[in-house]
């Protein structure tokens, strides 16, 4: 009898006593027996059948639910991932675009603002503009308080929002003034559309519209507003508006005595010297003025005194 055959039988639990005799006489068998003993001591996990059956039933119902949507879920999740990335991008860009940039001209200085598309705004003293720097190319929109001169590069509609009306243009130079509770729009180049007082008005080059209680059309003869050259210019406007402009320019307080403030004035005054400015305004109207050290100015009619 052969050791290999006996060993094979022994492994298959079929060894006869004769096989055992052969194996026990074989020195190698000792180590095989040792391997066998140790192997039988290997810890094998017990399969907890009642628990596992319960758990399997849960897996079943889960798999059942999943099977209905399975393929859809997988494709959707990819679409959703991409969509989520785009939504995030869109939301963040909308957010960034909504951050407004605010620029304010100081009390005594004209301020120049260069917009992202080479459009330019020149701010009159004390004027304030706000615009959205990051969304600029999509939304050319400026909010304005005070007076400013706009030189607009060609492109999408350029909108100036003021408390008194909305000014829209395509590409021009125009002046918008909202001092004195009225809106004055002067167009120097191109065509400007103004919605104010519930009306839509087109302002052509050389026109200057005053939108107050009534709409008045005046003419401009320069290519830029006078204040840019440090003077204020008026064509047939009531005196009180001119005086308010002087107050605004020079930080003075003007009171009037015995005079008709609805007198019409045409002319310019300088921004360089308050006395000279007061003189230019009062002289043509045969008025006089006095000014004290506290910047209080009184304008009166010398003849009526």
């Amino acid at each position: 009898m052969n050791t290999q055959e006996s060993l094979e039988k022994w492994l298959n639990n079929q060894a006869s006593p004769a096989d055992m005799d052969v194996l026990n006489a074989w020195p190698d068998f000792k180590i095989y027996k040792k391997i066998d003993l140790h192997t039988k001591a290997i810890a094998v996990p017990v399969h907890d059948i009642p628990f596992a059956i319960q758990e399997l039933k849960q897996r079943r119902s889960f798999a059942k639910n999943k099977a209905k949507k399975n393929s859809k879920i997988i494709t959707m999740s990819h679409v959703l991932k991409i969509a989520a990335a785009f939504i995030l991008l869109a939301v963040s860009s909308v957010y960034i675009a909504s951050i407004p940039t605010k620029i304010e001209a100081s009390m005594a200085q004209i301020e120049r603002v260069d917009l992202p598309d080479t459009s330019k705004i020149t701010l009159q003293k004390n004027a304030r503009v706000g615009y959205k720097k990051y969304g600029w190319l999509f939304n050319r929109e400026v909010t304005l308080e005070g007076e400013a001169f706009f030189e607009v590069a060609k492109g999408k509609t350029f909108t100036v929002i003021t408390p008194h009306g909305v000014v829209q243009v395509l590409g021009t130079s125009f002046n918008v003034s909202t001092t004195n509770e009225i809106l004055v729009v002067s167009c120097y180049e191109g065509l400007v559309s103004v919605s104010a007082n519930g009306l839509n008005t087109f302002v052509s080059p050389g026109d200057s519209f005053t939108f107050g209680d009534q709409t008045v059309n005046n003419k401009v003869y320069t290519t830029k507003p006078n204040w840019i050259f440090n003077e204020s210019s008026f064509v047939d406007v009531p005196l009180d508006i001119v005086l308010a402009e002087i107050e605004n320019q020079y930080r003075v307080t003007i009171t009037t005595k015995n005079i008709d403030v609805t007198l019409r004035y045409t002319g310019s005054f300088t921004h360089a010297n308050v006395l000279e400015a007061l003189r230019t305004v009062t002289l043509p109207l045969n008025l006089s003025f006095s000014k004290d050290a506290q910047n209080n100015v009184q304008i009166y009619n010398p003849k009526k005194q």
């Binding site: 492994l11 180590i31 095989y32």
Partner: peptide, 16 residues
């Protein structure tokens, strides 16, 4: 059977 026997012999060899 061959597979089991081969395994046993391989084990012995390796252990030695």
């Amino acid at each position: 059977g061959k597979r089991v026997l081969d395994a046993l012999e391989k084990l012995r060899e390796t252990i030695e």
